[in-house]
Amino acid sequence: MGVEFSTSQLESAAIWAKKIKKSRTSNAFNWGRKHSLFTYPFVTACCGMEFMSVAGPKYDIARFGAEFPRFSPRQSDLLMIVGTITERQGPVLHRIYEQMTEPKWVVAFGVCASTGGFYQNYSVMPGADQVVPVDVYIPGCPPRPEQVLDALIMLQERIQESRGHNQMLEIRRTTVKENTHLPVVS
C-alpha cells in the first residue's frame, strides 16, 4: 500500500501548484517590466532641468532600462510627475494617468510633486497624490540625480515584488473575481 491522500489534501495541493505556477510567471513578467520602464515625463516646472540631467549621458537612466521617454501616455507605464502641480492641472493629470497602459507606476519627482513643497496657497495642489496614486516620492528641491536613480531602484524592487499600487489593485481584483461563487454575506 502506497501513501494515500484524502480528497481535501489533493485539492489543496492542486491549489498550491496553481499558486506557485502563477507566482513564477508573474515573477518573470515583473522582471521584464522592471527593466523596461517607459517613462512619460509630466514636466511642469524647474525640476525638469534635473530630470534632463538624469536622462542625459552623465547619470544615464538608460542603465536601468528607463531611458526612453514616450510623449504619449498610451505608450508608457511610468508616470514621472516632475514639478509643481496646480489645482487647475489636477483633472489633466488624472486623465493622463487613466490613459496609460496597465500595469502602471507613478513617481513624484521633487517636493512640489510630493507635498506641494513651499507653496501654501490658493493655486498649488498639496501633492500629486491628491489625484493619482504615487508609488515613490523623491524629496529635494530639486532632487539630486542620485536620489532619482535611488528612487528608480526602489521602484524596481516594488515592481518585482508586485507591490506597485496598480499591481496590488490587480491582485485584489482577481481575488474578488475568484470568489464570486461564494454566497454574499450581508
Binding site: E87, R88, G90, P91, H94, Q120, N121, Y122, S123, M125, P126, D129, Q130, V131, V132, P133, H165, M168, L169, R172
Partner: peptide
Amino acid sequence: HPLRKDYPKDKRQPLIRRKAVTNV
C-alpha cells in the same frame, strides 16, 4: 479673487480629489 488681502491664505478650491483607496 485670490490676491485680495482678505482671501484666506491656504484656502484651496480643488477641481478633483482622489477617493481614498482602502483595503489594499
